[in-house]
Design a protein around this nucleic acid. Structure first.
Lengths: 208, 208
DNA sequence: GATCGTATTGGACGATTGCCCAAACTAGCA
DNA sequence: TGCTAGTTTGGGCAATCGTCCAATACGATC
C-alpha cells in the first residue's frame, strides 16, 4: 500500500504518481483543445507519454479522469482569485482583478475553454455538476463578501452578475474582437459603484 | 432540376424537404441533449424517423447538418429578440425583455444548451465561427442601437456586457439555483440606468 | 406499358472507441 | 536468488463511429 511509503516502493510509486499527474495535465489540455466528449483514451496516453493501458490503471474511467482534471484546474484558479481579492483594499482594485482576468483569459485560451467545456459536461454528469456548483458558489461568496465590505448594494446578486458577465464576455470574445477591454471595464464599474451621482451608498432595499 | 418545379417532382421533393427539416429539428434537440461532439449519424436518423443513409443524402456531413441546424435556431431567436426590442419604447422595457429571456431560458433548457454548445464548437470550426460571430454581432448592434436611443452611455460596450451577462447567467444557472431572477434584474438595471439605480417604475430624469 | 429523376433503404467499409487483461518489468526485502 | 507489490506494456474485445453505395421504391412524364 502507499501508506507504507518508504519501504520498497520508492521509485515505482513515484513513477506511478508522475504518470498520474501527467495524465491529469494532458486531460486539462485536451479538454480545451478537442472538447470534453472528443477526448479519448489513446489521445490522453499519447499526450502524457504513457501506454494506453495506464489510463485505466490510474483512473476508473476516462470520465473520471476528465472530471478530476477539470475540477483541479478550476479549484486552483478560484483559490488564486480569492487570494488576489484578499489583497484588494478598494472596490476599484477588486474590479481591477476582474479586468486582469479579462485580459489574461480571452475566451480562446485553454483555461477559458476548459471552464466552458466543464460547465456543459456538468449538465450531463450529476457528480460533476455538484462539485462544480461548489466551486462557483465559493467564488461568488468570496466576491460578494468583498463587495459587501465596500458598501456595494445587493452584494450577492452583484457578485452573481459580475461573475456571469466575466464568463459571458470570455465566451463572446472567443467569437470575435468585440469592444475593447477598457471600455468593458468602464461599464462593469457601474455595477460596483456604491454611489455615483447623488444617492447614498446605504443598502437600499430592492423590493418595490 | 428543382427549378423546373411543378412538373413531376411534387410529392417526392416534398417528402425530401420534410425529411431534411426533421433532420435539422432532430439535430437541434440532440446537440442540447448529448453535446455537439456526441451526436452521431444513426442517432440523428432515429430521432428524425428516417433511415441512416438519408443523413448523408441531404447533408454533406454530420458537421454540416449540426452547423446548419444550430445557426438556424440562433438566427431565429436573435431575429425574434430584435423584433421584441423594436417594440420597446423605454429602457426599462428593453431590459425587461432581457429579463424575460432570463426567466424563459434557465441555462438547462434546449435553447441555452444549444447556444453554449455552438459557442464551443465554433472554436474548432472556422466556418461556424464566422457565421456565429455574425449572429452575435447583429444582436449586439441591435441592442446597442436601442440603448443609444435611451441615452445610455457607451452603448456599444454596455450592449456587449449586457449580452455577455445574459449568456453568463444562463451558464451559471445551469449549475445551481443562485440568486433570484428579480434580484439579478435590479443589478442589471444599473447598467442601463443613466441616472440612478433605485426606483424603476417611471422614467424620471433625476440627476443626469 | 416504359422511362426518368428523386428519395430511400440497409448494409459494407475501415477506423476508432472504452475498457480489459495476461504477461513483462522494476525495485525493495529476505 | 526468489518473493512480492506496484507499474507498465501491447494487444484483444465488442461496439460504435462517419461515410459511402448498389439496389430499390415511387410518383411524374412520355
Amino acid at each position: 500500500m502507499t501508506e507504507k511509503a518508504g519501504t520498497m516502493n520508492a521509485t515505482a510509486a513515484d513513477r506511478g504518481r508522475e504518470a498520474r499527474r501527467r495524465l491529469l495535465e494532458a486531460a486539462a489540455e485536451l479538454i480545451a483543445e478537442r472538447g470534453w466528449a472528443a477526448v479519448s483514451t489513446r489521445m490522453l496516453a499519447e499526450r502524457a507519454g504513457v501506454a494506453p493501458g495506464v489510463v485505466h490503471y490510474h483512473f476508473s474511467s476516462v470520465q473520471a479522469l476528465l472530471t478530476e482534471a477539470a475540477l483541479a484546474v478550476m479549484h486552483d484558479l478560484v483559490e488564486q482569485a480569492g487570494a488576489g481579492m484578499e489583497r484588494a483594499h478598494m472596490p476599484g482594485e477588486a474590479l481591477g482583478l476582474m479586468i486582469d482576468f479579462l485580459t489574461a483569459y480571452d475566451g480562446r485560451d485553454p483555461v477559458s475553454l476548459l471552464f466552458a467545456e466543464t460547465y456543459l459536461a456538468a449538465g450531463r454528469d450529476e457528480d460533476l455538476r455538484r462539485s462544480l456548483g461548489e466551486v462557483v458558489t465559493d467564488f461568488r461568496r468570496a466576491l460578494a463578501g468583498r463587495l459587501a465590505e465596500h458598501q456595494v448594494p445587493a452584494p450577492d446578486a452583484t457578485a452573481a452578475v459580475l461573475a456571469a458577465a466575466i464568463d459571458g464576455i470570455m465566451l463572446h470574445r472567443a467569437l470575435g474582437p468585440g469592444p475593447d477591454a477598457t471600455d468593458l471595464t468602464a461599464v462593469l464599474r457601474r455595477l460596483v459603484a456604491p454611489t455615483e451621482p447623488g444617492p447614498p451608498a446605504t443598502e437600499q432595499g430592492d423590493t418595490p
